[in-house]
């Protein structure tokens, strides 16, 4: 695939301006899910964008400004909205599965959840 680039110096684009692309691992997964599904043809980008704008608008209207801007939380919400709208995965299914994952014994948790 693509050749890994230098992670120092000018050849380190995503970090070269002093900023990591993703603050937490789940943000990269949420990003990857939307892009992968879009590239596989599950939805168009304008469909996703519309859902993202709806989440951002709702957050702003609810008086969000003042706290840290939860961009990828809104991104994930938009993705769930699109998938629920398409009948692919319902919100209830996501919550049920997430609660089941929360019950895992610590040693079986193969991903690092810092919270």
């Amino acid at each position: 695939m693509s050749t890994p680039l230098d992670i120092e110096g000018p050849a380190a684009p995503p970090r070269s301006n002093g900023e990591l692309v993703f603050a937490e691992p789940w943000e990269s997964r949420a990003f990857g899910l939307a892009v992968t599904l879009h590239e596989a043809g599950s939805f168009t980008w304008p469909e996703f964008r519309t859902a993202l704008i709806a989440r951002i608008t709702a957050w702003t209207a609810s008086g969000g400004p003042g706290g840290p801007y939860p961009y990828y939380r809104l991104w994930l919400g938009a993705l769930e909205d699109v998938l629920a709208g398409l009948g692919v995965v319902s919100t209830d299914e996501v919550i049920t599965r997430a609660r089941a994952l929360a019950q895992r014994a610590p040693g079986h948790d193969h991903r690092d959840h810092a919270h």
Binding site: R29, A30, L76, L79, I95, A98, A100, L101
Partner: peptide, 11 residues
Amino acid sequence: SPSVALRTEAL
């Protein structure tokens, strides 16, 4: 709801 990290993993 469960944390966003768990929600993402579930999805």
